[in-house]
């Protein structure tokens, strides 16, 4: 049997109460991925700030490693990431950590707005951080590139999932992709649907653990990053993120597919 030990112990999302007790026990590194000015106003106690834009300005493994080192994260550090954009930005940061070989990372189950609206504790000071040394053990099995996508065309049992909004998908998408808009992934105040709910939805769509699944979205892998975790939360073992997503695909002038002969944009009230 495949080793399930990691997936078993590390949950995709962390609930609010667990995070609060981990914070009290000082057994977690919390990352706030909002903009610096938002972070400075207030944030979850002990959280460090890593604005997504900062990470994306150069997300080569070497630089990313430096960033995480400076945030006091080594191989053993338990990490929880949160944002205020329904989990999409947090997902992108969490995925990056996973990619450089970190295993113990989860998403906070809800957004910072929700945390605040529940009247939970926050603070304005930035914690003192001691730099740590993380090793670099890349996990290429969770990354998809455009070349990889091209090679996968011929393979059976590879599912490509487009997480952009439906109208964008109808207008153009990577050939063979199916549409699962990122909005489908959340439920009420949670960034992800409950596991059973998610499994039912995927099962209806014929998305199962037998396939290799690649997610993509518009440009930098945030919405599809959230989908990456949604699929993992439903227990699907083999998920990859096409991190450069549709923007790169289009720039490379790769083939596109569209829904022809219908003026669907005119149904939108935007």
């Amino acid at each position: 049997m495949r080793s399930l030990s990691q997936e078993k112990t590390i949950k995709t999302t962390t609930d609010i109460d667990s995070l609060r007790s981990e914070i009290r026990d000082k057994s977690v590194r919390v990352i706030d991925v909002r903009r610096e000015e938002d972070y400075k106003q207030n944030h979850i106690p002990t959280a460090v700030n890593l604005p997504l834009a900062n990470l994306l300005s150069d997300d080569s493994p070497e630089r990313v490693l430096k960033i995480f080192n400076s945030l006091g994260i080594d191989d053993e550090t338990r990490v929880v990431v949160y944002d205020d954009t329904f989990g999409a930005l947090a997902s992108r940061v969490a995925w990056t950590l996973e990619y450089i070989g970190h295993s113990d990372v989860s998403l906070l189950e809800t957004t910072y707005s929700r945390w605040k609206s529940l009247g939970l504790e926050s603070e304005t000071i930035s914690p003192e951080i001691q730099s740590k040394q993380h090793s670099l053990r890349l996990k290429p099995e969770i990354l998809a590139t455009s070349d990889y996508l091209e090679q996968s065309k011929e393979k059976k049992d590879v599912l490509l999932i487009d997480n952009r909004e439906r109208l964008n998908y109808l207008e153009q998408h990577i050939p063979g992709a199916i549409s699962l808009p990122y909005r489908t992934l959340a439920k009420n105040d949670k960034i992800l649907r409950p596991k059973e709910d998610m499994k039912r939805l995927l099962d209806n769509r014929g998305i199962s653990g037998d396939s290799e699944i690649i997610t993509y979205c518009g440009s930098v892998g945030t919405l599809s990053g959230l989908a990456y975790y949604a699929l993992k939360s439903a227990g699907l073992p083999n998920v990859k993120l096409y991190v450069r997503s549709f923007k790169e695909w289009k720039n490379l002038k790769k083939p596109l597919e569209k829904q022809e002969d219908a003026n669907y944009w005119d149904l939108s009230a935007e």
Partner: peptide, 23 residues
């Protein structure tokens, strides 16, 4: 599950268009 807009019909229905059949 639809296009982020809904449509009010002339017969007091609200329609959601471009829904994947499996959804």
């Amino acid at each position: 599950f639809s296009i982020g807009s809904a449509h009010f019909s002339t017969r007091e229905n609200i329609q959601l268009h471009w829904v994947v059949l499996e959804d």
